[in-house]
């Protein structure tokens, strides 16, 4: 076999330099864009971590007020709620009652 066949010179695909220039421009753009993206992600993470939260709500006064209403009964429709005595000022005890059986049940029991 001839040497020039063994080491045959192939032509690269056309427009190599234009493609190369385009790839270089692409890299340049991504090099500019990358720090911006990284900064954006870092800023988002910091904002999530350090964003001021709403202060914790203190329920104690409203619980104390409810406890002072001991014995009161609130009724609405077929449901009533009775406030019970609680020894712990941070706990409100209620007794809920629901009248069983709707109109259908009442008809059925006739």
């Amino acid at each position: 076999m001839k040497k020039e066949h063994v080491f045959e010179q192939f032509e690269p695909p056309p427009y190599g330099l234009s493609r190369m220039k385009a790839r270089m421009a692409e890299r340049r753009a991504s090099r500019i864009l990358r720090p911006v993206l990284v900064l954006g992600v870092v800023a988002t993470v910091l904002a999530v971590v350090f964003w001021p939260r709403a202060p914790e709500v203190d329920f104690a006064p409203s619980l104390a007020a409810m406890n002072s209403m001991e014995g009161d009964v609130m009724a609405r429709g077929d449901t009533s709620i009775e406030l019970m005595k609680s020894t712990n000022p941070r706990v409100v005890l209620v007794r809920a009652m629901v009248a069983s059986g709707g109109p259908e049940t009442a008809l059925g029991s006739k």
């Binding site: 690269p12 190599g16 790839r23």
Partner: peptide
Amino acid sequence: ARDVTQEAFL
């Protein structure tokens, strides 16, 4: 081969 060639240059 063209891609690898260009990558090498880059």
